[in-house]
Design a protein around this nucleic acid. Sequence first.
DNA 1: TTGTTAGTGTGTCATTTGACACATTTTTTG
DNA 2: CAAAAAATGTGTCAAATGACACACTAACAA
Lengths: 193, 193
Amino acid sequence: MEALRKYFMSVEDLSAGEMDFLLSHIKTKEIPKGTPLFQEGDLVRSIYFLESGVLHHFNYTPEGEKKTLRLREAPCFCTDLESFSTAKRSEQSCVAMTDCTIHELTKPKYDSLINTSMRWSNFVKTITELSLVKVLEEIKEIANKSVRERYHELAEKRPGLLQVVPLQTIASYLGTSRETLHRIRRTEILQNS
Amino acid sequence: MEALRKYFMSVEDLSAGEMDFLLSHIKTKEIPKGTPLFQEGDLVRSIYFLESGVLHHFNYTPEGEKKTLRLREAPCFCTDLESFSTAKRSEQSCVAMTDCTIHELTKPKYDSLINTSMRWSNFVKTITELSLVKVLEEIKEIANKSVRERYHELAEKRPGLLQVVPLQTIASYLGTSRETLHRIRRTEILQNS
DNA sequence: TTGTTAGTGTGTCATTTGACACATTTTTTG
DNA sequence: CAAAAAATGTGTCAAATGACACACTAACAA
C-alpha cells in the first residue's frame, strides 16, 4: 500500500479522510510470477497500480513470434487504456514477470470516483496527464536511438529490470536479436575492465 | 475551423451553444512554412490544434545533430505537455513544415475552461485520454519494428507525410541514414514494377 | 535569369547485424 | 537429486547498414 499512498500524495496533498476515500475504491492482490493481468482478446475492465514487481506487455506477430511491447517496473499504473476506455478487445497480454503486489481499480469504481465531484474528476485528469507525459518521455527514449544507446539508457534509468528480465526479452523489447544484445553486453564488459 | 468542430463532435455530441462556448476559448492563426510554434528552452503556454498542415518536432544532440522526434499531421492536438502542465522549459522545438492553420488555446483559457464545470472538466479529461491512447498506438507502431517495417507503416497510415516531408527528415524520424532509407525506397520501386 | 543552397541518387568499403548451429550454463520440475 | 527445459555464450557467414565522396536535380533568392 505504501507506494500507492506515496504516489497519490505526490499528485496532490490529501487529508487522511480523502486518502481513505480513495483507497476504499481499490482492492489489493498478491499475484505469483506468471499470472496474467489480462490477455489478448480480453475486455480490460480495470486499472492496476503495480505496488511491487515487474510486468511484461507483449503480443504475437502473425508468424507466431512473441514481441515485447513494454516492460513496467513498480511503482506505476498499468492497464490497456484503449480497451479500458473504449471497450475494445485488447491486442496485447500483460503478465507478471516476478511475484507482484497490485491494487485493482475496477471500471465501476472508477466511474463512481470521477462522478463523485469535480475535485476527484480533476484528480484523475491530473493522473491521466502525468501518465501521458511519462509515455511521451518513453517515446523520446526510444525514438531515433540505436539499440546500443537504448540499452545504455535502460541500464541507467531502469537497472532493476536487467536483474529480473531475461536477456532475450530485453532484446525483443529493444527490437534486436538476443545474439546482438549479447555482443553489446560483451563489449561493455571488455570496456569496463 | 471545420476540422476542430468535427473533432469536438467526435468526442461528444455538442449543442450549437456549447460549441460556441468552446470555440470562444481559442484563437485561430495562419502561419507560413518555417514558423516555430515553440522552441527548445521555451515555456510552452498553449495547446495548439493543427487544422491543416504538418508539424516537425525535433531537438539537437550534444553533437549538434538535428533529431526528428515526431511528425504530426492535421488534424491533431499539439503541444509539449510536460512543459505546458508542469511549467518546465521545453527540450524540443516544433516548427511548421508547411503553411499551417492552427487554433491556439492558452493556459489561462484552458484553466478557465476546466474550472467552469464538471461537464467541461470531464470533456477535457476525455480528450487527454484519447491523446494518451493515440500516443500508445504510436509506441506500438515504433516498438520492435525494423526501419523497413516502420517505413511501410508510415507509407500506409500517413501517406500525406511522404509528400511533404523531405526524405532525410523521414530517415531521421525512423532512426536511420538518408542513404539507407533511399535504398529501402529503391527496392520498393523495383518490386512494384 | 543566375547563382546558391537544399535535397536526392549512387558507388565503395569497413562495420554491424541476423540467422543458424551448437556448446555451456542455469533454472525448473518431477 | 536427476532429467528436462530454458536461457545464455560463441563462431561463421551472408546480408544490411553507416559513413564518405561526389554527381545530379529542385527550390529559392538576389
